[in-house]
């Protein structure tokens, strides 16, 4: 009765039934967005992630920390500045130069005084604010979230960040925007108490404390790529998605080897099964 076909459909049904657990949040329908790394066959685009790093460094890092990232990560395999010449990313000349541009707080071990020294690849990305209170004070009470795992920490992932960055919109007539806030149709929220129009047509989205961060030509790309808003946004999302899981490339490559191995092993075991059970009615 419970045949093989039923077993397969039961597996599928059970997995499909889990889908509501990650249903989308209340923001607007996300813009279509894709990255070169998408899917099992995705490829890492170092040039795009390099451009994205430049956007992060020149724009985002003024307010947002990335506490989980170290400069050495930029030079490790699958990192934007990986160079096969340097097995140890701490030796990567480009990464060293990037780190050196930053002043890092440290303690002088001779005197105990707080001093500043040039960064090294082993240092973490420095935090733009000394503490959470300073960060809130500088941003009208809102705390700019740490961006280390941001593409994994939001429903919709990269498409959500891209939509948010490029989705700032003229304020609909009838919507009262509080001082220091901006309307964004992709930000989750409930605008009904700020809406004076038709109560069945409350605009999608919410208020965000971040002013539109990107505009065309805000960042100039060294490889000559035209610096449109969409280009900057998709590049910085590519960088953030890499930063959220720098080992994702290694994961997918390992996955292929594992699946090929398991497929062969399954074939062998099936052949053994047929042979062992040959002649036994069951």
């Amino acid at each position: 009765m419970l045949g093989k076909g039923f077993a397969v459909s039961a597996v599928v049904a059970l997995l499909v039934s889990t889908a509501p657990a990650f249903a989308a949040s209340s923001g607007g329908e996300l813009k279509p967005f894709s990255l070169s790394t998408d899917g099992p066959f995705g490829r890492f685009d170092a040039a795009q992630v390099q451009r994205g790093y430049k956007v992060y460094r020149e724009v985002c890092s003024a307010c947002h920390s990335m506490n989980l990232l170290s400069f050495r990560n930029l030079g490790q395999p699958d990192g934007p500045f990986f160079d096969a010449k340097y097995k140890n990313p701490n030796d990567n000349a480009f990464v060293k130069a990037i780190a050196k541009d930053y002043n890092i707080n440290d303690i002088d071990t001779e005197t105990g005084d707080v001093v500043q020294r040039p960064g090294t690849p082993a240092d973490r990305f420095p935090n733009p604010y000394p503490n959470e209170y300073a960060a809130r004070a500088g941003n009208g009470g809102a705390l700019p979230p740490d961006l280390s795992v941001i593409t994994k920490a939001r429903e919709g992932g990269p498409a959500y960040i891209y939509s948010l960055l490029t989705g700032y919109h003229d304020v609909p007539r009838g919507l009262e925007v509080p001082a220091g806030k901006y309307y964004n149709p992709y930000m989750p929220g409930d605008l009904s108490s700020f809406w004076s129009g038709d109560k069945d047509k409350v605009p999608a989205g919410g208020f965000i404390a971040m002013a539109p961060p990107l505009v065309a030509d805000k960042v100039s790309f060294d490889d000559g790529t035209k610096s449109t808003l969409e280009q900057q946004a998709s590049d910085v999302v590519a960088f953030l998605d890499w930063a959220a899981e720098p080992k994702a490339g290694e994961r997918k490559r390992t996955g292929f080897a594992v699946l090929i191995y398991l497929a062969l092993f399954a074939g062998l075991l099936y052949a053994s099964y047929r042979r062992v059970w040959k002649g036994v009615k069951h």
């Binding site: 990650f22 099992p40 920490a153 994961r251 996955g255």
Partner: peptide
């Protein structure tokens, strides 16, 4: 594990 490691989890 290798291709959809976070599909069964939650972004939050």
């Amino acid at each position: 594990v290798f291709f959809q490691p976070n599909a069964l989890g939650h972004a939050d």
